[in-house]
Amino acid sequence: MRTRISWRGAIGLAAAGASLVMAGSAAAQSDKLQEALSATWPGMVEGATVVDWEGKVLQEGSNGYTCMPSPPDLAGNAPMCLDEVWLAWAKAWQNEEPFTADRLGIAYMLQGDEGASNIDPYAMQETDDNQWVVEGPHLMVIAPPELLEGMPTDPDNGGPYVMWEGTDYQHIMVPVGARDEPEGD
């Protein structure tokens, strides 16, 4: 389950380009840094900025991507790396403000996620009618709305699909690995 509270501080600081003093144990910082960077491909690791959920900058970067470890209140693993367009999207989503992409943006979640509704951007847990999807390793692509027209919305179609279709937060999910199947399936 995710909470939007965790996103507010980190996304806001990342979007503002905050530079904060490192605090906490070196081992804990190293663990957060490694987890955050596990969201992306090896060629991006060195140049990415890494921010923890308390807003501490763990690594200054120069490639335009900001990576974050899994939210601390999440039981599982869901680190992410966002470009500038995705940071703007995340800030709008977090504050329930309008957002329209004017160009492509790419985000990496190569460790997968703990699940989200495919239809409701603010669902916090699975229900009988919110099409909950626990996605394996994936990319997310933001595009101007007209580029999303005609794309599939079914997360079980075997390829990319539009998540949160028709909302200001719609984006393309691009699976790059197998999903973990729930126990008992």
Rank of each mutant, 00 (worst) to 15 (best):
L33V: 06
G43E: 15
T127H: 05
L139T: 02
Q170V: 05
L148H: 04
Q29S: 08
G177K: 05
E135Y: 03
T100H: 09
G17K: 04
S6E: 12
L20H: 07
S117K: 02
S38I: 10
V45W: 02
G166F: 04
L58E: 00
D52Y: 00
G177V: 06
A92Y: 04
I142C: 06
L20E: 10
A14H: 00
C67F: 04
E114A: 15
V174M: 08
E97G: 05
I11S: 00
G12Y: 01
A88C: 06
N63D: 13
G76F: 04
A28R: 15
D168W: 12
G64E: 04
G61F: 03
Y108N: 07
P71A: 15
E60Q: 12
F99G: 00
M80W: 04
A123V: 01
V174P: 01
E183T: 12
D185K: 09
N77C: 14
A88K: 11
Q125E: 15
I11N: 00
K91S: 14
R8S: 07
I11A: 02
K91Q: 15
E135H: 11
V50C: 02
S6K: 09
A23M: 10
E54K: 09
Y108T: 07
E97M: 08
V85A: 14
A88G: 06
E149C: 12
W89H: 14
A107C: 13
V176W: 02
M109Y: 02
I5H: 14
T153I: 13
R179G: 03
Q125F: 10
E114M: 15
R2L: 08
A23L: 11
E126M: 11
D185R: 10
L33F: 08
G24Y: 05
G64L: 06
V134G: 03
D180K: 10
Q125V: 11
R179N: 15
R2H: 12
Q111T: 07
V133R: 07
L139M: 11
D120R: 00
W41A: 15
L147E: 15
W93L: 08
V50W: 00
M80P: 00
G17S: 06
P69E: 01
P144N: 12
W93R: 01
G24E: 05
V21S: 11
W132Y: 08
I106V: 14
W132E: 02
V21E: 13
M1F: 07
E54L: 11
E126S: 12
L58R: 00
A143L: 08
G115N: 03
G136E: 03
P72V: 05
K56M: 11
S62P: 05
A18M: 05
P144F: 10
V133H: 09
V21N: 12
E84K: 11
A26Q: 12
D113M: 13
G177I: 06
A92G: 05
A18W: 02
W86H: 12
V176Y: 02
M44A: 14
V134M: 09
R2G: 03
A143Y: 03
V57Y: 02
A78S: 13
P144C: 11
N118G: 04
